[in-house]
Design a protein around this nucleic acid. Structure first.
Lengths: 124, 124
DNA sequence: ATTATATGAAACCATTTGGTTTCGTGTCAA
DNA sequence: TTGACACGAAACCAAATGGTTTCATATAAT
């Protein structure tokens, strides 16, 4: 699967609250643009542009049915986000460990243990 | 923990590649601004502004040491992202299930099974 | 054939964003 | 005390963003 060097990436796509709302809405069912835009306090055209950005990020697929265009969620690209996130999980897990140690009054651990795991690039 | 109604949220903060790079850099160690900005092809002031945005999202903490300001990663706010993401996991898991079924040539499943789980708001 | 509906494209606009340079201030070093 | 260093604030700028309205086109319905 070659990356199509899209203009908008997943991180940018989900940055906007309206677009996150769109994803939520389209999770449940495929919908044509007019119906979708009925859920938002803005013009149909504006919603349409948000849908385009989501489509460019691969988060949404469109299908032409007669004179309407129906959109549906495509969650797969969110895996990239999950992967990115997983890199940072150890940091807050470490934080929780520190807290746990504190609560347990483990006094002989004077300095905080820091788990230096493998050095990875969270972007790839 | 009351939400301090910050101007920049986590979704916005991580949308920018430079800021994601900053998080990566600051994961390993606390660093003063000048050292940090040495890793980026832009002015110290520009980096400083990115750091401010990250700080507003709670993703970074600053500490004054003499004449320098040192920054370090604070991963905890990423949990919000994880929570948001987890809502969508079932969608791509479902996708994988469909694929698996296809590979297994399970012909008597003519229509795709769609698991309608609980309706939750991924934003909260 | 004509009219109504669904949509995208285009032009436009205000605000935000990501960057710059310049300047002021606090702190360390000689 | 006099520089030099570390930094943020401010003013500024071009481009991107999120929205609008208007127009053109394809399809459906009468």
């Amino acid at each position: 699967m070659a990356i199509p060097s899209q203009k908008h990436d997943v991180f940018q796509a989900i940055a906007d609250p309206t677009r996150r709302h769109l994803l939520q809405l389209l999770g449940d069912q495929e919908m044509p643009v007019t119906v979708i835009s009925g859920h938002f306090p803005m013009s149909r055209t504006a919603v349409s542009k948000h849908l385009r950005i989501l489509a460019e990020a691969g988060l949404v697929k469109e299908r032409k049915v007669g004179r309407e265009t129906r959109y549906r969620l495509e969650a797969e690209p969110l895996m990239e986000l999950k992967r990115w996130l997983s890199y940072y999980e150890r940091y807050w897990e470490n934080k929780l460990n520190v807290l746990k140690r504190f609560v347990e009054q483990d006094d002989d651990a004077a300095e905080l243990t820091f788990t230096p795991l493998e050095v990875v690039d969270p972007e790839k």
